[in-house]
Nucleic acid binder design. Structure first.
Length: 671
DNA sequence: AGCACGCCGACT
DNA sequence: GTCGGCGTGCTC
């Protein structure tokens, strides 16, 4: 007699359904009803069926009432592995959200044709893979992977040429590659780390922020592993491809699974390595409820499943610094420190001077010219477009969109003024401050910088790389590559010089994480330089510039985290934002406060402040130890409000949205 | 979310 | 006496 009860997680965003429901398994379904399969199950009176996943089987019901029978098994494939169900539960609890919302990130939409083909295809086992040493770390990284350690990993800047065998020790920094492609060192390190995991018989998950990083990683992996060992799971690929690769991960042989943020939920056979590249990138923040950051998911998963965790980057996020200081992560760096040659330069002219000549100090100018003799030169700017800022010609105030208050700018030399946020064209703009009607262009975006530089260096090829003009790579030929931050192409052989032009403007942004972000943007751009290629940071001084120049990002993260501790800002503390009607928000805050002043001190309740008509927001901050209790309390309140809706006068059901929304560790209020 | 149950007003 | 209004609560 087999287990006759199936515990099912219902696929629904409703908070009151976020638990396991018991169903009897009818005899005809017994063979198919295994943990992980998608099922249809009646929910509240016959006729209505919900979909869900069997999370576990049991001999007897935990539920006292009479059970319904499972209606059907949607597909025989166990798409929700037990450890992923457990991960989803933990992540949901930590974020005060629902497990099925998390599972939806973990399990891609089913494609029947793909599934049928996969079920019909013969299983074949893959030939074993020999291990490879990560000798630039001595034996520290090899050992860490083998024993399943948690590591904050510093990665060498620069790249290696394809075809050039990565050598065991004393790797010379490659000069110009004779031919073929150039792969960034970080990608090469992660690819070899993954191969080490595979050689030991385990899987590896490698997460990257965006698809450009993904391309780098796939290029690096292609050098060290056969394609049958590599699976790709990213939101950018078509659903059929995504489901096909997802199914491949379920096969018994371990694979390297690469993708963007949600790849941290991938099903992996005997997970041996979970690695994130550049964990400070905001793209790791999940935009869908319950908004769990991929880094946090990775931490939870490692804790649950073991295996090595590697958070690799050029810069150290304050979040990782915190974990290093706690002793939760160990810090591993290459034995021999290689760092870019960074030059700091003050601005010679006021920043609003418009010509490229005025924006680029003469020393930087010389280095750029020198670099162009040998190969490509990178110019990093803050913003895309032509003139990202417009000001009133009469009073000098910045011009803003009449509809949404976004900044007005022009995208091309002759284009109309338009809003950077909503895209609305500001046809008959009038200054709200002085009634002026004329706009003045201020500042230079990527397009204008590219054109200016083209004039300043006649005969030199100019490449414009921004969101609208994406370039993954540029060849090893003289060219000026003007790129917005984060959109820099990878140059074969490395850039002969890197100019970080808009440092001052980037630092001027008002956000809790500006300094951290700037150092990350600059360091990542600097890492694209060729071995002796100079990196020039224009117009920034102080400890931030010094951290880049000395390539000591860890020390900077330590200071930065110490500041956050003093201010009680994240990641020194966790936060919960509660948004909704004033009464509901006040009540939710009250319930958390009732946990005690030790959990939530009165000074750690920020707000409420009005965020819309009839809507307020309060922010709670609390220490990490109290996170579970705060999340549990807020979640309970959400469930309570969803079940017993007694908002407003009796007899009136509150229409539309639920009265509160809860979000843990939302970075937005601090931006 | 849906959908049934339940307890007060107008009805053949 | 009964039909049906919508407020309230639950979903294995």
């Amino acid at each position: 007699m087999s287990a006759s009860i199936a515990r099912v997680l219902i696929d629904s965003p409703l908070p009151q359904l976020d638990r396991l429901f018991d169903y009897r398994v009818p005899e005809p379904l017994a063979a198919l009803a295994v943990p992980g399969v998608r099922v249809r199950a009646p929910l509240r009176s016959a006729g209505r069926v919900a979909e869900g996943w069997i999370v576990e089987l049991a001999e007897s019901a935990a539920f006292g009432g009479t059970l319904s029978e499972l209606e059907s098994v949607v597909s025989p494939v166990a798409v929700l592995a037990p450890e992923i169900a457990a991960l989803a539960r933990r992540v949901a609890d930590r974020s005060a959200g629902g497990a099925s919302d998390v599972v939806r990130l973990a399990v891609p939409p089913r494609r029947v044709r793909v599934e049928k083909a996969w079920l019909a295809s013969p299983r074949q086992s893959l030939p074993p893979v020999a291990p490879v040493a990560l000798a630039e770390y001595g034996s520290a990284l090899d050992e860490a992977i083998d024993r399943g350690a948690r590591v904050a990993l510093r990665v060498p800047p620069g790249g290696v040429a394809t075809g050039e065998q990565t050598r065991a020790h004393g790797e010379e920094r490659a000069g110009a590659p004779a031919d073929g492609r150039w792969v960034l060192r970080w990608a090469d390190v992660l690819a070899r780390a993954a191969r080490r995991a595979i050689a030991a018989g385990g899987s590896a998950i490698l997460a990257v922020p965006d698809h450009r990083d993904l391309e780098q990683l796939l290029a690096a992996l292609a050098r060290v592993l056969p394609p049958e060992r590599i699976a790709r799971l990213d939101a950018g690929q078509p659903d059929t491809d995504r489901y096909r690769d997802f199914l491949r991960c379920l096969a018994p042989d371990p694979l390297v699974i690469v993708g963007n943020r949600s790849v941290v939920y991938a099903p992996a056979r005997r997970l041996a390595l979970l690695a994130l590249w550049d964990d400070g990138d905001p793209l790791y923040a999940e935009p869908l409820a319950p908004y769990a950051n991929a880094r946090d998911v990775a931490l939870v998963r490692q804790e649950q499943q073991g295996g090595a965790l590697v958070l690799a980057a050029h810069t150290r996020s304050t979040d990782v610094e915190r974990l290093v200081e706690l002793g939760w992560l160990e810090s591993v760096a290459p034995r021999r420190t290689t760092s870019p040659r960074v030059v700091l330069t003050a601005l010679q002219e006021p920043q609003d001077a418009l010509s490229a000549h005025a924006r680029i100090p003469s020393s930087a100018w010389r280095l750029a010219r020198g670099g162009l003799d040998a190969g490509p030169v990178l110019v990093q700017v803050a913003r895309p477009g032509w003139s990202p800022l417009l000001v009133c010609a009469d009073c000098g105030q910045q011009a803003r969109c009449a509809r949404c208050d976004g900044p007005l700018g022009v995208r091309t030399a002759s284009g109309p003024p338009a809003c950077a946020w909503c895209g609305a064209i500001a046809a008959d703009w009038r200054c709200p401050h002085c009634t002026g009607a004329r706009l003045l262009r201020s500042g230079s975006g990527s397009a204008r910088t590219a054109e200016d530089l083209g004039r300043a260096f006649p005969g030199v090829r100019v490449v414009l790389a921004d969101g609208e003009h994406p370039h993954l790579t540029v060849p090893d030929r003289p060219a000026l590559v003007v790129a917005t931050r984060g959109a820099e192409p990878v140059a074969d052989g490395g850039y002969r010089a890197v100019l970080l032009l808009d440092g001052e403007r980037m630092v001027a942004r008002e956000s809790l994480r500006v300094a951290e972000d700037c150092l990350r943007w600059w360091s990542n751009a600097a890492a694209l330089a060729a071995p002796e290629g100079p990196v020039v940071l224009v117009g920034v001084g102080g400890s931030l510039a010094a951290a880049l120049a000395t390539w000591r990002q860890d020390a900077f993260a330590r200071e930065e985290l110490a500041d956050r501790r003093r201010l009680r800002f994240p990641p020194a503390v966790r936060t919960a934002t509660v948004t909704g009607t004033p009464e509901a928000v006040a009540e939710a805050v009250e319930r958390v406060a009732a946990l005690g002043a030790d959990t939530l001190a009165p000074s750690d309740v920020l707000g409420p402040v009005e965020t819309g008509p009839g809507t307020v927001r309060s922010i709670l901050r609390f220490d990490y130890v109290h996170g579970p209790a705060v999340a549990r309390e807020l979640r309970a309140e959400v469930v309570r409000l969803a079940t017993a809706r007694r908002a407003g006068p009796p007899g009136r059901r509150a229409p539309g949205r639920p009265p509160i929304r809860v979000r843990l560790d939302d970075p937005e209020p601090f931006d």
